[in-house]
Amino acid sequence: MADISLTEKYQVTIVKFGTRSTIKSDVYLNFHIYKEADDALDMDYFFWVIQNQNRTVVVDTGFSRRGGEVRDRTFLIEPAAAVAALGIDAKDAPQVVVTHAHYDHIGNLDLFPNSELIMARAEQDFWFSDFAWRLQFKHSIEPQELSYLKEAADEKRITTFNDTYEVAPGIDVMRVGGHTPGQSIVVVETDEGQVVLASDAIHYYEEYERDLPFIFVNDLREMYEGFDTVRQLMQTTAKHLVTGHDPSTLERFEPVVEGPLAGLAATIGRKEQR
């Protein structure tokens, strides 16, 4: 990522919209091989918004009402209400980055019927293939949401990329694979340093710190390599890591304390640059 001006730096807002309670053996791949006692573990659900005075980019859109209810997930705020609280108007057609096509990341794409959707070509190709309907993969999707993606493709609203893509100066998307064939991370420049939005390349900070792959994995080697890619970024250019589902996430950044998102969001950087 090249040097950019202050006017091309962004504020990242992390929005927590849902939660559930689970256990470690339902989260980490082959947890028994670590020879540790099982333990309770919460999982929070997020989407992310990147903004400055010139641009808004939405990163994933959470799970839909149906997607959450059939899996007994707890809603904390409707993603549509959270989007509105951030002052985002669908009429402005903000770009939407799809890090991967699981139900809890594309459940509300229909909030943005005119937006450009950006996703890895490997992700689109996989979910448009017959493999999407094999049970181990189908478990993580909602059929109507894949149908919506296909409609968007037919409307030529999907921009795909192979390895990396510059959404705008200061915002890059990188395919790392692992969790899904096209699982991507987003790297953002802010006035508080570079931010890595890992999405489900890394669900938990413990997952990253202890090298614990997640239970749902398309390619285990790529998942490990994704950990290494993020580590390299954190050792060189990046200052902040935002994982995909860790309940400690909001505590690590500047909390939103007023309005509809109070207690449900945190920010990194300033939206309006000096």
Rank of each mutant, 00 (worst) to 15 (best):
V195K: 06
I4G: 09
E36C: 02
A132Y: 07
T19A: 10
F63D: 07
E258G: 00
G263M: 00
E116W: 03
I141W: 01
V256A: 04
P143A: 09
G87Q: 04
T236F: 11
A266S: 03
K9L: 05
N52E: 08
H240N: 15
H240S: 12
F128L: 14
S64V: 01
T13E: 03
I185D: 05
I185R: 03
G62T: 06
V188H: 12
Q51W: 03
R274N: 15
V176H: 01
V256H: 04
I158R: 03
A2W: 11
H102C: 10
F75N: 05
R210L: 01
L197I: 12
A152Y: 11
G107Y: 03
L220G: 06
H240I: 01
R73A: 10
D191N: 11
G62W: 02
Q144M: 11
D125L: 13
T249N: 13
N162K: 10
L261I: 02
K239D: 08
Y204L: 04
V97I: 14
W48K: 12
E258D: 08
D211K: 01
M43N: 11
L212H: 00
F131E: 14
T61G: 11
Y34F: 13
V12Q: 02
F161Q: 05
E116C: 14
F47Y: 14
E166W: 11
E166M: 07
Q53T: 14
Q136Y: 07
T160R: 06
Y34Q: 11
S129K: 12
V242G: 07
V187D: 06
D38K: 06
T74V: 07
W133K: 11
F137C: 07
D191T: 10
R221Y: 03
W48Q: 15
D172N: 13
F161A: 05
R274P: 15
N30S: 10
E209G: 04
I77T: 05
D3V: 04
R65K: 12
A153D: 15
G62C: 02
G107L: 02
T56P: 12
T19F: 02
F214M: 00
G18C: 00
Y205T: 00
R157D: 04
Y208F: 13
E225D: 14
N114I: 00
S147Q: 15
M234P: 11
Q95M: 14
R121C: 12
I50L: 13
Y204K: 05
E254P: 06
Q51A: 08
N114C: 08
V167S: 03
A82Q: 06
D125F: 00
Y28Q: 09
G244R: 06
T159G: 06
H203P: 00
